[in-house]
Amino acid sequence: MSDPAAPQEPTASGAAAENVEYRVAHLQDRLAAEELGELGVRAEIRAGAIVVTGTVPSTQCRETLLRIAHEELAGLTVHTDIVVADNARPDHAEEL
């Protein structure tokens, strides 16, 4: 999912909060600290946008993650590619 809106004025106040790097760090802190307990999602600054990628355990987790990402990065261009884990059984085994 992409949100290609042009960057707007950051909504957070304070010099540190306006620095995009720290805002990305704060997003990752929040994903770990809140209900998701999520450490496996990557958030990177790429060509002026924030790219958030990873795999989460459920559809509900994906919705929560997208909401938090857009809240924390409000005003910035955010591209997301979050996959929900596949719970299908394997169709073959690996012979070792």
Partner: peptide, 15 residues
């Protein structure tokens, strides 16, 4: 890790 194998589980056959 499930995000790596992208399945409910993988199976390894020890010959």
């Amino acid at each position: 890790a499930q995000p790596v194998i992208r399945r409910a589980f993988n199976v390894y056959q020890l010959q």
